[in-house]
Design a protein around this nucleic acid. Structure first.
Lengths: 219, 219
DNA sequence: GTGTATATCTCGGGG
DNA sequence: CCCCGAGGTATACAC
């Protein structure tokens, strides 16, 4: 990783056009060739960047980065205050816990958390317009399409509506009911769901996980 | 801006839980207090981060970052290879051209690009559920609600559908037709638009801009 | 502050 | 390669 502290101006042209006036910034070049220009603020997002793969041509006072998609980044170096390179080696990567996929696994293992007597038909039930998170049957044997989110917002309800509309065209499944399940459901999403006859279920991640680990303890 | 090159492990706990095994990484602390941990690849996104505002407590072998939302980032420093600080000063910021706002301006100036005889009623037409990008009248005097995007995806069509549903409740406006205009329209969005009776228009940004500059040359 | 819409969104998975 | 969905999305702006 090469780190440059320099007074510079930057032009980007590609998905849009952007210009950075002269100022002191950090220019980061990673081992994969990607280039990012950071100011001393503004969270983790760089002001400008260019992803790998690309071609980087470094002249003393001007760097040019281009790629095959026609994007172009040009850095004019007015004054370089620091220029260091460090060998970092490859990174073992990040372990995450608590994302939607994990939530889906837990609910799939415990569909009764949605309503007593609910059983799983299958996960990621495929349709032409995308996979339904869970397809279940309720205590009465009716089909239930389940959309699972960490944060339940209006988009998720609309996504579920599209699936329901699609699934209800299948005479073997209809009537299909909808359940919108999330760790947190925004008021607006709740209103839309009610309007569309979709039931909302708030999931307790820790509780679901503890049920699973309790079940494991039986073995 | 403080830059640390160090062998470290990292734990994040908050919106999810995440763990980084021991490896050499860049730790960046910006003037606003935000902290980002970068590997030597993976474009501009850090492996882990903590946005400002937060509290950073640095011990020689352990940094703890916490905020008021209950998030927590803990960095264990196994070995520090480099530790530098640079004064960057404030940044004048980025000038952009070609974002959705510009596209909306251009179409507002040339509504005939949507269909011959189309005239603008107003931009950002307010409704209870948000502003409609453009409200127009077509050659027959019928009201047209226009949603403008750089990239037309399914969410944008849903957004327009909500506006149409709302606007059509107003007896003075109904029937309101929908136009979905974008520089690029994804297949799924096109299918949904067709299903909902919404017309799609592909916009040519450069052409729209050249019409405008041609018009300016007349003065 | 919440809610809504945008982003050079990034990133990863599947066809 | 594109398409599509998820994200600790972040960020700006209106109410």
């Amino acid at each position: 990783m090469r780190l440059l502290i320099a007074r510079c101006t930057v032009e980007y042209s590609g998905r849009l056009d952007a210009h950075l006036p002269e100022a002191i910034r950090l220019i980061m070049v990673k081992a994969d060739g990607c280039v990012a220009i950071h100011a001393d603020g503004g969270a983790f997002k760089p002001l400008n960047w260019m992803n790998a793969p690309n071609r980087l041509v470094c002249e003393p006072d001007r760097w040019r980065v281009t790629n095959d998609k026609g994007e172009r980044l040009e850095i004019v170096l007015v004054e370089v205050y620091s220029d260091t390179t460090h060998e970092l080696g490859s990174d073992p990567g990040l372990d995450k816990d608590g994302v939607e996929a994990h939530l889906q696994e837990l609910v799939a293992a415990h569909p009764e958390a949605l309503a007593d007597g609910t059983v799983l038909v299958r996960r990621e039930y495929p349709t032409d317009i995308g996979p339904v998170d869970l397809l279940c049957r309720d205590a009465h044997g009716a089909t239930v399409a389940v959309e699972i989110k960490r944060r339940g917002e209006i988009d998720g309800v609309e996504q579920l509506c599209r699936y329901l509309e699609y699934l209800n065209r299948d005479a073997r499944l209809t009537p299909v009911n909808g359940v919108f399940a999330a760790q947190e459901i925004k008021p607006q999403a709740r209103v839309l769901a009610a309007d569309r006859g979709i039931r909302c279920v708030v999931l307790d991640y820790d509780e679901l996980r503890s049920i699973t680990s309790d079940a494991l303890k039986l073995f």
